[in-house]
Design a protein around this nucleic acid. Structure first.
Length: 422
DNA sequence: TCTGGGGTCCTAGGACCC
DNA sequence: TCTGGGGTCCTAGGACCC
């Protein structure tokens, strides 16, 4: 097998830069929702020592001193850029697994035969993406997904490979010895620590442990990782995008929330949003979970609670979902706390066509509900916030803030509006 | 002053069955 | 009074990923 992992460099920062050529080679950071933490940095920002995931106020001085460009995260822009990126990758091979917003695995087995080598093919992919998307990419190639991932890391660390690095089968040792444990896909913080206490430090050390021993002392996941590091494919490419098994919508508030009424607005909005996602994959939910919590950083009283609410029957109807969610909220709400965050999770999802109807419910009710919901979704696809339930509230003072938001250059109407206003 | 959001998979342990 | 062996299903929690 020949697997390539294509990964955009500093994806969010690169997306912003595509539309702001004046920021070429300038430091850029992207903030999380609510402008809280730094979630992406351009190479220049990394070089200034700005850490990943730190709260933005801790980097305030560096940002001001070095005139770092700061953006709120603009997910509709990044999503649109991601779609373009993926469709270009799909023009190279039908065997693409979209792994995240900026990453995809490509199965190049047999495909690069026309090209002189995998590396040349990778360079071709890279040049095409740069030309049509303006995005810098790194590509790692290897006999397994785990090795392709590691090769990608290596390509990023070593500019001399010009963005494409391949591990030849049987030649893994050089790469493995150069990579620390924690850089291995599937080895997170906890595992790294545990393995280090056993005296391991590089990917090579891990690869040398017999898989059966790993299975005995850890689990099947790490066993697969070890086998993959040794060139034995254990994790296949996933071609078809499966429906989600759970759908979450949760947000921190822009300021602390105290009243039940405000929490009701938030829960109602989040449930509506989750229900939209549910319908877009044509599923129904049988259970809804809601949670509310204070901030762990506050010194006042702490409170966090959640509740699962079984629904009378599987549904995609926002009205029923919101009704149930609000009922659940009343059971867990306690006055006197400064709430920082709330969220909703839809669980026990199944396909709409497989729904087992209640013996006493009328089929026509659910058909009418589906039609109503589809109509609302169609309108909202054209007009953001076109139609919504009154329980979502109008002012929504609690809604997250995104003060440094760039325009959505790829959404025509919003962009035109932006230009007109200017 | 200010600290993100959305997912998947596996395992252990309990309840229950024959 | 004593009580075996094998299995499934569900859930909570932990670890990982981006």
């Amino acid at each position: 097998m020949t697997i390539a992992l294509c990964d955009a460099n500093n994806f969010y920062a690169s997306c912003e830069r595509v539309f702001r050529p004046d920021l070429a080679s300038k430091p850029i950071v992207i903030l999380s929702n609510n402008d809280g933490c730094i979630v992406a940095r351009s190479a220049e920002a990394k070089a200034l020592g700005i850490g990943m995931g730190i709260p933005v106020f801790k980097a305030r001085d560096i940002i001001q001193q070095h005139h770092v460009a700061v953006f709120s995260s603009n997910y509709s822009l990044y999503g649109a850029m991601s779609q373009r990126l993926m469709s270009i990758l799909e023009s190279f091979t039908p065997y693409v697994e979209v792994y995240s917003i900026d990453e995809a695995f490509l199965d190049l087995t047999n495909l690069h035969e026309n090209s002189s080598s995998s590396i040349a093919y990778g360079q071709q992919i890279r040049a095409t993406l740069a030309q049509y998307c303006g995005l810098p990419m790194s590509i790692g190639i290897g006999p397994t997904k785990t090795l392709a991932k590691l090769a990608n890391h290596y390509a990023k660390q070593h500019p001399e490979y010009k963005g494409v690095y391949e591990v030849q089968p049987g030649q893994e040792t050089v790469l493995l010895k150069a990579m620390p444990l924690g850089d291995v896909w599937g080895v997170g913080r906890k595992l790294t620590h545990k393995l280090q206490t056993m005296g391991l430090s590089t990917a090579y050390d891990l690869a040398c442990i017999p898989p059966k021993m790993i299975r005995k002392h850890f689990n099947v996941l790490l066993e697969r990782t070890v086998r993959e590091l040794n060139g034995e494919p254990c994790i296949g490419l996933i071609h078809q995008v499966a429906n989600k098994q759970q759908i979450i919508c949760s947000r921190s508030f822009s300021k602390r929330v105290f009243s039940l009424e405000t929490l009701q607005e938030a829960i109602s909005s989040y449930t509506s949003r989750a229900a939209e996602k549910l319908r877009s994959q044509r599923s129904t939910a049988k259970t809804i979970m809601i949670f509310i919590r204070t901030s762990p950083f506050d010194h006042q009283g702490q409170y966090r609670h959640s509740v699962f609410i079984p629904l009378p029957y599987p549904t995609m109807d926002s009205r029923l979902l919101v009704q149930s969610a609000l009922k659940g909220l009343k059971t867990i709400y306690r006055p006197g706390f400064a709430y920082a965050k709330a969220g909703v999770m839809l669980c026990d999802l199944s396909d709409t066509c497989l729904v087992q109807h209640d013996l006493f419910s009328k089929q026509s009710d659910s058909t009418r509900a589906l039609q109503l919901m589809n109509t609302i979704d169609a309108i909202n696809n054209q007009f953001t916030n076109g139609l919504f339930l009154a329980s979502n509230g109008i002012q929504q003072a609690w809604r997250m803030s995104r003060s440094q938001l760039s325009p959505n250059y790829l959404n025509n109407w919003n962009h035109i509006k932006h230009v007109l206003v200017k």
